[in-house]
Structures are given as C-alpha cells and as structure tokens.
Design a protein around this nucleic acid. Sequence first.
RNA 1: GCGGACGUGGCGAAAUGGUAGACGCAGCAGACUUAAAAUCUGCUCCUCAGCCGAGGGUGCGGGUUCGAGUCCCACCGUCCGCACCA
Length: 857
Amino acid sequence: MSRYNFRETEEKWQRVWRERRLFEVSTKPTTRKYYVLEMFPYPSGKLHVGHVRNYTMGDLVARYRRAQGFNVLHPMGWDAFGLPAENAAMAEKVHPAAWTRENIATMRAQLQRMGFAYDWSREIATCHPEYYRHEQKMFLDFLANGLAYRKEAWVNWDPVENTVLANEQVIDGRGWRSGAIVEKRLLSQWFLRITAFTDELLEAIQRLDRWPERVRLMQENWIGRSEGARVVFELAGRDERVEVFTTRQDTLFGASFVALSPNHPLAQKLAATDPGLAAFIGECNRMGTSEAVIETAEKRGYATGLEAIHPFDRQRRVPLYVANFVLMEYGTGAIFGCPAHDQRDLEFARKYGLPVIPVVLPPGADPAGFAIGDEAYVEQDGTLFNSSFLDGLTVAGAKRAAGERLEALGQGQRTTVFRLRDWGVSRQRYWGCPIPIIHCPVCGIVPVPEHDLPVTLPEDVSFDKPGNPLAHHPSWKHVRCPQCGGGAERETDTFDTFFESSWYFLRFCSARDSHAFDREAVAYWMPVDQYIGGVEHAVLHLLYSRFFTRALSRCGYLDLDEPFAGLFTQGMVCHQTYRSAAGEWLFPEEVERDDSGRLIGPDRRPVVTGRTEKMSKSKKNVVGLDAIVDTYGADTARLYLLSDSPPERDLEWTETGIEGAWRYVNRLWRMVSEPAVALPPPGAVVTGELAPEVDMLRRVMHRTVAAVGDDLDKFRFNRAVARIRELTNAIEEVPPAVLGTGAGPAVLREALETVTLLVGPMMPHLAEEMWQVLGREGLVAEQAWPVADPELARQEQVTIAVQVNGKLRGTLECPRDAEQSMVETAALQLPQVLRWLEGRPPRKVIVVPNRIVSIVA
RNA sequence: GCGGACGUGGCGAAAUGGUAGACGCAGCAGACUUAAAAUCUGCUCCUCAGCCGAGGGUGCGGGUUCGAGUCCCACCGUCCGCACCA
C-alpha cells in the first residue's frame, strides 16, 4: 500500500504554479473581479500553526472564487515597522532593518511552503522607502486639507524610557518594559482629524452588511455618540465661565456642584496661585491610567473655594471642585454634579457633604417620601419635580424644555458629542516612517517639499541611550529650512504603525506604481471583497482604514469611502499549556508520556497541565509550522485548520487532530491511486441503467456539490469538510461487485474527479496530484468549480418521521412528493402508531411534505 | 456597571420550528500480521430490558406550538469588548 509522498508532491506543484505564474493577475475590466485579503502580518520571526489559520481560509476563498471564474487578487505583504524590531536591536545588537529583512525571508518561505496562491509579484514591505514615501506625501496632503494638525495633548509618558506609550503599552499603570509608573504629560503631537468623519463613519456602519454584527457594534460603541447639551455656569465674582457637557439637562435643578478635570485650563490657571490645588493635580496625573487603578481609585475632589451660578436661577450657587474622575478628553472636561441621579456624583456628594436633591420621581413613588439612599435613581423613567418650570414633565420632555430654555437664555445649547477622539500619530521611535516636517525657528512648521521625499531613516543609529535614536543622532535632524534657508531641525517622531496598515490594501492594487496607486487599478479592484483577520483589530485598524480611505478621497486620491465590503473575523488557535515541576513553561514537544501514561517533562518529572489558551510564545504552547509541514505536509495542516471547528470560533490544536487529518489525506490518495474498480479513461460518459447503489452514489455526489458550494459561500468550512468526507464514505460504501458493473466505473470516475475538485481549494497539492493520477490534463487550479445538477441532486425516496403526540413512533419510506393523503394513510397503518392510538381515530393529523407526519391522539 | 456572544455525548462539533448527536477525535471489540505500525469491520447519549421495546435527555425553571437545541419570559454559568464617557 503506497503512502502519499507529500514532500515531493508539494514541492512539485508549487514549482508548477510558480513557473506558470498562475496567481499573478492583472486588471481585466471585462472579467468579474474578486479581491481577497488576509490581514498582513508583522514579521516577528517564525510562524507557528496558529498564525496560518486565516491565511488558509483566505487561500480557500481565493482558489474557490478563481474556480468560479472570478479574476482574483490575493496579495501578501509585511507590516514591517514596529517596536519588536527595536527591542531585538537592543537585546541582540541587530539592526532593526536586518532583523526585519531576515524575518520576512523566513516567513515568506514558510508561507510559500504552505502553497498559498498569492500573487507574489505584488509583495510589499512597509519599511521600504518605496512604500512609505507615499504615506509621507499623503500626510502632507492631509496637512494641506486640514486633516492633519499639531496640538498639545495629554499622553502616557514613561519617565525611564523617555517616550510616549500607547494605552495598550501601559499595564497596571506602569510601562510595560521599564516598569516605571506612567505619568500624564502634555506634549506636542501630530494628529489626524478622524473626527471630521465621525458622523459618516458611524452612519455608514449600517451599510456594512457583510461585516460581523459584533464588530459593527464595537465600532459604534467606540465612536460613542451621545446627545445632550452644553451648559454655561458663570463663576460668582469672576469673569470666567465653565462650560459643562451633560446628557441630563433635565436634572439641572438637582445640581449640587460643578467639577473640572485636573487638566482643565481653568484648573491649571487656579493652580498657579493655589499650591494645594497644584499638589492635588500633580497627584492625579501620577495616578495610573489602567483599569485596575481606575476601578479602585476613590473619587476625590479639591474645593476651589469658587462658586458657580445656576443657569436657571441666578440666586443659586454651587461649589466648584477639581475632581479626579472628570476626564479632560471627553465633552468639555467639566461636569455638573447631580447626586440624586448619577452614581458617581452621589458618591462624591456623600464624601464631601453636598446636598442630594431628587428631581426625577420614579413612576408610582410618593413625592413627599421619596429619598435617595446609597443608590442614585438613574432610570430615565418618571416625572420631574422640585424643578420649577420642568415640574410634571417626563424625562424626555424635560430634556427638550430645558434645552430650549438654555438656548433662549444664552446659557447653553443642545449638542451631540462623541467618544471618538482624533488619532495621535506621533511616536518617539526609530523604526517607523519619519514624519516629513521641518521645525524652523523662523518659519515654524514647514512641510518637507515633495521633491525631497522620501525622508528616509538614517542607518547608523545607536540604541544604547534611552529615548528616540532619531532625536540623538548626531546629524540626521539638522537641516536647512526649505523656506528661509536658515538652520532648522527635522521632526524626529515617526508615525504610529497603524498608519502603514491604513492603506496597504490600496497599494496592492498596483504595487509597483510610481504613485501611491493607480486610479484605474484601484477603481477596478477596490473595495476588498473579502477581508479576513483577527477580531483584535475590530476597532483600531479597521476604523483607521475606513477613515484613511475617506481622507484620501477628500484629498483627491480616490473615489471610495468603504475599503472592505466583506469582513470575516476568525477564531484563535489554542493549545494546552504545560509547566514543569519547577514551574517553567514547556513546549508541547518537550512533554511526553512515561510508561504509566503520565505526562512528564525533560527532567522526567510529572508535568502540570494548564488551561488551553491562545498559542503564544510567552507560554510556549506553540506548535511550529515547519515541524508540522515536515511531518505531515502543508495540505494536512490546511485540512486540520479548516475542519475541526467553525472558522469564527477558537480551534484547539491537538496531536490526534492533525493525525486524523493525515489519515484522511492518505485515504483520498489511496482512493484515486488504487481505485476499488478499474476506471474508464478520462471523459467516459455515464449512460444506461444504474444499479440502485450506484445511482445513489451519483445523487449523493450532486447533493454534496450543492452543499459544499453553499457552505463555502457562508464560511462554514468545517461543514464543507464534513460533506466531502460523507461523499468519500459513500464512495467506499458501494460494494465493488456492484460498482464494477455497467456504468459503475464511469460513475466512480465522476465521483473521484468531483472529490478532487472539491478539495482543491483546501488541499491544492493533493488535488493536483489526484487529478494527474486520474489521468486528467491541466491543473485543478485552472478547472471550473463543479456544478450540481438539481435533477440528480434530488432525493427520490424520502424517510418521513411519524410522531404521535409529539413523540417519534416510527418512520416511513415514501417516494418524494407523494400524495399527502397516501402518506397519512400509510402513517396511520404503522403498527407502532396503531398501538398508540389504541383503536381511537386521531383527533388531528399534520403532514409536512417529505418531512414528518404528526398525529394528535 | 454597559454592550455582545455562547452553553448539545468522554472531546471538537452538526441540526430552513420537523427522526438530536451528521462529520471527526478518543475508547472498546474483532480482522489482517510472527509482531508492531498502517489499514479494514463493528459498537459507543443515559436508565430499565437477554431480545422486541419502553422511558429520559440539548445549563436551570416556565411559556407558545401538533411538534422547541432552535421562538418568547425569567434565572444560572462561561467568554469577549468597552468603561469614572458626565
């Protein structure tokens, strides 16, 4: 019995595909296009099996759509800028560029060994100046169109590393690498005006009907629209006024304080003459930003001694505080506190002895007896009281009336605010795209002239000192001002790496163009028909890309708003974790079973098994891709990644699972290389009467074709695999004695060729080899997708279930679409049915054609 | 706290409101083999029963329906996202 030689086979067909440049595509305006894209990887080192699940899915889609006749664009590239390269530079003394280059070479080879149908002629790496020069130009165009600007912003500052940290780099209030407590600092940073598109970005989510519902929800929540009002509080005895934002203008008569964020300009101003306040603000800014800190932090305030005048009643005064729980980044950075109807305000009021005035009476409550205890009444259900002209109104009515009154008095206006903030793109990092700006002491901020682009990174940098290597490079930043010719300095910040990934999908449309992209190519290929990636990018990358596409359109690059028509978010690949007796993480291959079946580590001592978690280097629960491809081949790995779990759910990688996939690969191989009966030559036509078993096989085959197509369309890959396995089971269940007679061999050939075509997108190398062994010309990769004949897919004989009082009592074999009355009569004569009816006539009989007969006794 | 998803055999799972457990993993028994591997065959939701069969079963409790894993209500649990958002 021959075993499938995947090593030779996979190399052979990869060579054939490459030599024929099969997957290199060009724009063909007359052909239907299909753009499949998997989120491009960061070249972090070596791939493990968990990394390739989404590429396997993308490749399946690409090959399936090709077979359906689409002109398919399926490119691959590298999101090549980022921190790990700098960390490696520090730890291993390698240059980030060299480290990145080597990783790309390794990972490219790994992807090629998997046999993915990429158009490698379009490969890009974002760290290449030929890529990032275009985004420097884009940035300058954004600047000219008011979509990029510089402002002071509060950032997470790591005082040891001298750099800004992204929110996700702050863990428990400390820098993720230095361990230093992160501070809030005011810094000048570049921002992209994503908020110019807030309404559009929010509204267009509704039309992204091929996106997962939860991603759309996450984006909606992130943009976070809330309707309310800005309300002006004048300060007694001073010229200043405080503007607050509220969604509860209806509760203004319950106001008992006004609070400013510690970073509010007025708070800063007051602190200049109030050392106590200055100290309080300093404390607030040193407080961490992590969830844990926030959750445990107690609400604290500092009474400024000033008083705010109530906008509806100039006689009423409320104290002005600076409070640690008021965010500068949201609304106006100031709030009014209504303790009766907001839990935070209530805690604050109790702590500082402020009055709690209920103004919304819950339905059915007694106005005389209603009081607030430990819990604020936050439901927006009830009627207003204690509220002058708002008394008796509903919450909604009071919001409207209060808003109108504020506007009439000039004390505020109704407005909508969003949680979404502009995108800060400055990073104090070396391994990123330089921001093409020159700071001139005379002319100020001067864009680098277009003919001087790209601004490239200097190669001779040192990572010995903390902070940004670009900033302490001896010469790089010193330049002449393009405007006045005087001495000036380059901007030493680089872009956030989300900048590169916000337009790479456009670059793929014409990857070698001297412009960022060719308009016609983009018009042809975009939008991406099917985008595939992890849900961890549900907000940031996907939102930035949606914004970028709009911003580029506004700057005249494009005529497009949504880049991704279809999105699929795949689940993670998980694996059991192991620790040695000493508590160290162990790689799965370090764990083995001893004679008594216990799991033991390299030290021969028992291993502690932990929970099954996402594969990650830190926990060592990774299975290397090379090892799997060496042992089982790419097709086996691909099959396993597609077959065991629904694609959107997590997949648990197990040794037995991959073994099972390997068995099936060999089974398929044996079916075609040693067929049960001798096959007729290719092209044999099925004619004449078929034996019932053979006829059945043919019908199963057509049904399988229909079902697999449907499953692939709907991303139910695990089901598609199960269907194909059912078909192979059906083939093997026909006794050879029957299969060898009449048209049997021709039907077998038909079935084997069909299986070959169906597994083509999943196991492309095996499919090519099967095709060849079956004596067929050409490549599976060039064959059309099989089409089911509805006549032949139809079931002629159906099994109908018979229920009595809702319980299954028997089944009935009937011809398809049999007369209902006949089915009913037959059902009522079943012995089991007669027994349950006990001679009485049925009260009711329901016949669902071809499905079920339900009898009510 | 807010928002969302999910809960089915020993395990991964499948099931347009219509025979729950397809397909696979694991296990058991058998065949082939000197033996092992590979391969093949059969069995495997639970309880009672020699067999025929009967009863129960999709996290828990109700409801709608001839019929509910699927729809509705309430609860329990797990996971994910956001979160001092005014």
